[in-house]
Structures are given as structure tokens and as C-alpha cells.
Nucleic acid binder design. Structure first.
Lengths: 180, 180
DNA sequence: GACGATACGGAACGCTCGCCCCGGTTGTCA
DNA sequence: TGACAACCGGGGCGAGCGTTCCGTATCGTC
């Protein structure tokens, strides 16, 4: 691979991270090319479709989320770990339209590799069942419910502008998930 | 107004109700024209833009929601009235993509007349404050929070397919709103 | 320094969709 | 029943966007 090709690939990926984070997957690809300082053709030489580029960006983001989830697994209080994860995830996604678009699409991360997808949700499952065993979360919720609630919470949060209001909404939703 | 014109206007409106309900505002206008059995030109003769047609459809739906809200105002138990309204609204919207698109757009019903919009949310406010006075709902929530939570709940609900799961999600979110 | 391979930019293509226009038709009223 | 205004259908226009193509520039090597 030629040096300029590698350099341009990096540039495109970095620009795509920024632009997708700001505007979500709906942004025109030309905008990404422009921000990267390359032509549209160059983008397509490195990524076969716009969606593939989006996947590549999301894969990176999911790695970060997974690192967080993994760290929380060792927390003393499984209930607190779960709720921290929930709040953190919602906040991350509310700041990153790429992440929220990916979450909503087709019931989960439609983007990112299959194995990343699977291991991420396996981690979520562990946090959830841990919290349920500790009596902190309603026992009748499964990982699908949690995903749905994260997506819903995300949507609720970006209906309001005031960050204090957003925090309150997260609190409301978390309260609803607690065991009675 | 000529008889055929009035007839076609009705047809278009009825087709638009169905099609928007099924597929949301993103549906091509040609599809509505086709279902109404008229040409696209005819649609535009009766409604200046696609958005105006959508508004007209939504206005009708909001009337129905308002009738429900109004009826619940006289309920003995203000808490139950509020939660019934919440659940009912979410279920209505989850069956009607027009309604959910309208709700999400631009922080509330961007469609429908201003006065319909205002009086609808005034009714919601009454149900909310009633439930709060009765000690059934957290006192720190306002109508904006409720709107955000309805939108969020809606999104959560259409992440799952099983109706029992959907009901459970509504229950979770309602529980979160209850006063402690 | 010259040459072949590789990569680049951006114009062009095809598609979708909102909206407009015009030649033909239909309803209304004298 | 005839004439005219109102109305109709659907092809067409223009804009936006994903994707492709090709003439040109750049890189790496001998």
C-alpha cells in the first residue's frame, strides 16, 4: 500500500468519525470527503460503500463502550455497576449521533462486526444478570428490554435541551427498572 | 367547489390517513396519489405541500387523542387517569407511524394548528398536575418531561415485537414516573 | 531521471422524490 | 344541449445523494 494511500485512508476515517458523530449517518458523503480534504472517489477506493465506512467508525466506538462495560463487571455493587453503565451509555450516545443512529438501526448495532456485536451484548447481559441476582433490577427484564430502554431513553434525552432535565429523565427510566 | 373536486379531496385525505399511518411521513407522495386513485397533480391542487397534507391528517388524529384526554380529566383517581393516558397514547402512536413521526418532529406536534397543539398540551398538563397533587407522580416532572418520556417510550416500544414485552416496557417507564 | 503501477479528484450517471405544467376531460348552468 | 370554467392525470423538471469512471498526478523502483 502506497504511503499516500495509507495517509488518505486515515484522514477519511478521522473525518468520518467527526462528521458522523455530529450529524449521524444521514450526512452526505461529499461532506466527509470535503472535511478529509480528498475527493469522493478516494473515499470509495478505501471503503466500498458509505455504510461500510460507517461500520468502521462504529466498530471503534463500540470498542470504547466495551472497555467501560468490562471495567464495571468487577464493581463491588452489581446494581450500581448496571445503572452506571446504563447512564454512561445513554450519555455517550446522546453526544454522538453516529452511536445513536447505529443503536436504533435494525434492533441494535447493525454496524460493527458480528463478533464485536455479540461480545458487547454478552457483556451487557452479564451486568444485567448480576444486578438482577443482587436484587437491584426487575427480574423480568432481559437484554432485549434493556436495549429497547436504552434506545428509548436516548430518544427521550435528546428531546430536551437542559442537561439537568436529561439527567432527571435518565433517573426516571433507571428507577423504573429497579426491582420493587 | 365542484362535486368531483370535493370527492377527490376526501379520497386523498382518506388515502393519506392510511398510508401515513402505515409508513410515516417518509412515504413518497405518489404512493398516496396511487392509493387515492388520482394523479399527483390532484393532490397538490388540494394541499399546497406534502407537509400540509400531513398536517391535515395529524390534526384529525390529535382531535381523537384530545377527546380521550378530556374524558380522563373527570376520572376519580387522578393518578390512574394520568397513567392510563400515558399508556394509551403510547399504544396509539405505536400503531400509527404518522402520529409517532409527528410527535418526534421538532419537539412535539409540529403539525396540526397552533391552537390544537396548545390545547392538547394544556390537557396533558392538567392530567399531570392532577396526578402530582394526588401524590401519584414525581413532583419534579413537567409537561416537557412527559412529552420526552412519551417519545422515548414510543421508541422503546417499537424496538420489540412481542406485545407482552411492549406492555412491560410501558409499565417500567410508568413506574419510573411514580412519586417515591 | 524515467517509467510503470498505483492512487487521486471531481465530473458524470442513475435514481428518488417533491412539485409544476399542460393538453384533455368533466361538471355546471343558462 | 352547448359552452366555458374548473378540474384531472401523469409526464417532466430540478435538486440531492450514492456510486462510478477516467484523465491526470504522484509514488516507488531501476
Amino acid at each position: 500500500m502506497r504511503a499516500d494511500a495509507r495517509r488518505n485512508r486515515e484522514r477519511v476515517l478521522r473525518a468520518a468519525e467527526d462528521v458522523f458523530a455530529e450529524q449521524g449517518i444521514a450526512v452526505p458523503l461529499d461532506e466527509i470527503a470535503r472535511r478529509a480534504g480528498v475527493g469522493a472517489g478516494t473515499v470509495y477506493r478505501h471503503f466500498p460503500t458509505k455504510e461500510a465506512l460507517f461500520e468502521a467508525v462504529i466498530a471503534g466506538r463500540v470498542e470504547v463502550l466495551m472497555a467501560d462495560a468490562d471495567r464495571l463487571r468487577a464493581h463491588d455493587d452489581p446494581g450500581a455497576a448496571f445503572f452506571q453503565f446504563f447512564a454512561h451509555k445513554v450519555k455517550q450516545a446522546s453526544l454522538n449521533k453516529a452511536l445513536s443512529d447505529a443503536l436504533e438501526a435494525s434492533r441494535g448495532f447493525r454496524y460493527g462486526t458480528q463478533e464485536t456485536h455479540d461480545s458487547f451484548w454478552r457483556l451487557v447481559d452479564e451486568l444485567l444478570t448480576g444486578a438482577q441476582r443482587a436484587g437491584a433490577v426487575r427480574p423480568d427484564l432481559d437484554r432485549d428490554d434493556v436495549r429497547a430502554l436504552i434506545v428509548g431513553c436516548l430518544r427521550a434525552v435528546d428531546q430536551v435541551t437542559d442537561p439537568a432535565k436529561a439527567d432527571r429523565l435518565i433517573e426516571v427510566m433507571a428507577d423504573g427498572m429497579r426491582a420493587k
